[in-house]
Amino acid sequence: MATDFGSFFLNSLPNLLNGLGYTLLLTFISIAVGFFLGITLALGRVYGNKIINGFCVGYIELIRGTPLLVQLFIIYFGLPSVGIIFSPLQAALIGLAINSGAYQAEYLRGSIQSVESGQMTAARSLGMNKLQSIRHVILPQALRISIPAWSNEFIYLLQYSSIAYIIQVAELTAEGKFIAAHTFRYLEVFAMIAVIYLVLTIVSTEIIDRIAKHLSIPGIGAAKRVSLRDI
């Protein structure tokens, strides 16, 4: 039985690794693109004028108010009807990044607003302009404060990238489904997939935790929040 499972696992390995590759690709690209989107939106919300602020709020609320799967369906099934066609992978990347951008914007906004107003005042009194103050004083603090939330977001994306399976991206879950459909060993396959996600979650949490420790500065952030391990 054990050797049987062993050889089964080995036979599945190429497919699983292939799927894992796509899962990581989806996760990393969408967290990175979502990050830049999120920062832009967060800055727009905090420092933008009425119009910019309104636009950012609208975007954030619309995205956070609807399921990721609906967003993917609109992009993958809906847009081709108006002539905009994406491959499954493209659609998934765009959907995940757009989605993550909205959530990251909210974390970042919270962090930016939690930097005391005196920091901006002090920066301005030194002669920095607003952009310099944001860049050299506000963001370095806000980004550190948002690491725990960002860690959550990473795990969230890692797991929700599995939704891309539904629009035919050959990521981890899809590969699992594929193997299971050919071997009829659903329980073992999905247990295996579950364990892989679990390990990924634990490992990436640990890595981000290390990074956070490395970047931490006495008196800023982290301590006030839930421990990173508690995810």
Binding site: I155, Q159, Y160, S162, I163, Y165, I166, T173, G176, K177, A180, Y186, L187, V189, F190, A191, I193, A194, Y197, L198, T201, I202, I231
Partner: peptide
Amino acid sequence: RGIPLLVLFFLIYFG
């Protein structure tokens, strides 16, 4: 918390 919901669905429904 470490398993995607979709995988959990598959485990329960297919597994």
